[in-house]
Each structure stands twice: as structure tokens, then as C-alpha cells.
């Protein structure tokens, strides 16, 4: 819902508002008065803490980039950065591989059935990430539903460790990411001209060929946007690796928390946060170029 409303310029959408500006437009002073409170809040509670973070990363008695230098040589930081990239890429790829068929399935349904299926996709979107994490442990944990079933079927032979390790993080990640991927691809699929598919079929193309030559290329904008949204969301993930991962699966956000609370090294925490901010800023800018819009919220 957010992207379309974000990208439109609200005043130019109403030419009548411009032409009658003298009578219905808001005077500059009233406008300033109405905008001031929120602007002050954003300066004080958003830009100030961000600035303070940058400052903390650069200042220890004097201005220096020592905190960054230490990060660059810290095995912990480099390992965590590698984890983050690995997990974000794995999560995004799995979410793409499974999300694409779901989008295809949704696009092929008649409108009423599509709404019913979409509700199943949107339900987790509305569910608290904590509820989902708890439930995933209950399903995939060592004593969980799935392992109970496996144990019963195999006579107690099989017990798959699927929680508190890399598998757990990725499972939690794709559970969170899939709706964003599906909705993004679905948008492209619903926009494509189905007569092209019919034409390809009339000319004798098989299902796979139609998919590779017609459907996939035409849905690329949705795929690219979905991938960028997924990577952006997963790169800053905190709850999922903390609750579903093991010690080896720490991600950048968890490292920020670790430096802040465990080692009380605020310059290191701030420098780590600034690195994360820079990476995600870059991704958001790329997304903006692809879609000319913002990011649906809800990063946890």
C-alpha cells in the first residue's frame, strides 16, 4: 500500500488545487505552523540520535576513525558481516524460489479465489514476529511438531536439528520475507498481457519455453524489486537470528546489541550501526531507482 501513495506528488495530482491556489491553498505561515511540530520531533528523535551515533563512532577524546579501523581488523566483525550476507542472500533466494510459484498460482486464480489465497499470504504479515518465532520453535524445534512426527514415523530414529542453527534463522527469515516477495512479483504478473502467452502457445511453445521466454522476462521488474526489498529487510534483522539462531549465526544487528550491552563498547556499536545504515541506504536508493517509491515498512 505504501509505494504508490509515496511516489505520487500530491499537489500536482490536483491541477485544480494549483489553479485556485489563492483561495484553497494554505498560506505559508499556516503551513509552517502545521508542519513545525512533526519537523521538530523528527529533528530531535530521529536525526539527532542518528547524528549522535555517527559522532560516537568518530569521537573518543578527539576525532578519529579508530573504531572503523578496529572493526576492519576484528575477526568477530568480519565473521558477522559474512554471516549477514550469507543469511540475507540465502533467505532471499529461497524466498524467490518459493515465492515465484506462489505469485504464479495467485495470478492464475479467478479474483474471488485469489482474495482467499491472498489472505493466507497476508496473515503472517499481520502476526507479531515474536508470535511467529515462538510458533516456529514449536513446529521445527527438537521437541517440535515436525520432529515428533518424524520420530513417530521412524520409530525414534530421526531427529533433525532445525532450530537454534543456520536452518532455523533461514526458516524464520523466509517466513518473514515471503509475503513481500510474493506481493512484489504478483504485481508484475497481473500487469502482463496474457494474450502474449496465448500467442506463444498458438505458435507451439511449451509451458517451460513460455515461462522462460515470456513470463519470466516480463515479470523481472517485480522480481528485482522483491529481491531488493528482501535483502534490505533481512540485512537489518535482529529478532530472528537472536531467537532462532545459534551462537554461530549472529548478524550485524545482533553485533550492535552485543557491543552496546555486553562489552559496553559504544564506539564499536556505533561504527557497526553506521556500516549497516550505509549498506541499507544504498539498497533503499537502488530500490528507489527500480520502483520510484519507498519500502513497505515492518522491518524487525
Amino acid at each position: 500500500m505504501t509505494s504508490s501513495s509515496l511516489s505520487l506528488d500530491h499537489s500536482s495530482a490536483h491541477p485544480s488545487a494549483q489553479s485556485s491556489g489563492a483561495t484553497s491553498g494554505l498560506g505559508p505561515w499556516s503551513a509552517i505552523l502545521l508542519l513545525a511540530p512533526l519537523t521538530l520531533l523528527m529533528l530531535g528523535i530521529l536525526l539527532y540520535p542518528l547524528g549522535l551515533t555517527v559522532w560516537t563512532s568518530l569521537y573518543d577524546g578527539q576525532l578519529s576513525v579508530r573504531a572503523y579501523g578496529e572493526l576492519a581488523t576484528s575477526t568477530l566483525f568480519l565473521k558477522v558481516l559474512r554471516n549477514t550476507i550469507e543469511i540475507a542472500v540465502t533467505g532471499t533466494l529461497v524466498s524467490l524460489v518459493f515465492g515465484y510459484p506462489v505469485a504464479l498460482h495467485l495470478a492464475a486464480q479467478p479474483p474471488r479465489r485469489r482474495t482467499a489465497c491472498l489472505i493466507m499470504v497476508m496473515l503472517p504479515f499481520w502476526t507479531s514476529i515474536l508470535v511467529k518465532s515462538f510458533a516456529l520453535v514449536a513446529v521445527f524445534g527438537n521437541q517440535g511438531l515436525l520432529n515428533q512426527l518424524l520420530g513417530y514415523l521412524s520409530g525414534g530414529q530421526v531427529n533433525l536439528p532445525m532450530m537454534f542453527n543456520r536452518v532455523g534463522v533461514v526458516l524464520g527469515m523466509i517466513n518473514f520475507l515471503l509475503p513481500f516477495m510474493i506481493l512484489s512479483i504478483l504485481g508484475s504478473l497481473l500487469a502482463l498481457d496474457r494474450r502474449l502467452v496465448l500467442a506463444a502457445e498458438t505458435m507451439g511453445a511449451g509451458a517451460l519455453r513460455i515461462f522462460w521466454k515470456v513470463i519470466l522476462p516480463l515479470s523481472m521488474p517485480g522480481v528485482v524489486a522483491g529481491v531488493l526489498i528482501n535483502v534490505t529487510l533481512s540485512i537489518g534483522m535482529y529478532i530472528t537470528p537472536a531467537l532462532l539462531g545459534g551462537r554461530q549465526d549472529m548478524m550485524v544487528a545482533n553485533l550492535v546489541d552485543f557491543y552496546t550491552r555486553q562489552t559496553l563498547d559504544w564506539p564499536a556499536a556505533s561504527a557497526t550501526a553506521v556500516v549497516l545504515l550505509a549498506i541499507s541506504g544504498l539498497l533503499v536508493a537502488m530500490l528507489g531507482r527500480v520502483r520510484g517509491g519507498g519500502l513497505p515498512g515492518g522491518a524487525a
Partner: peptide, 20 residues
């Protein structure tokens, strides 16, 4: 500026606000 809170990773905001 008003839309920025949606785009900044929450962990970064969490740390900044903690320091502040």
C-alpha cells in the same frame, strides 16, 4: 524526512535512541 523512520533499520534507531 517524515518518511525516513520507515527506511532506517530499527536496530540503528534503537542504538541512537539508547545513546541519546
Amino acid at each position: 524526512l517524515f518518511m525516513m523512520p520507515m527506511l532506517v533499520p530499527v536496530i540503528v534507531l534503537g542504538l541512537g535512541l539508547y545513546l541519546q
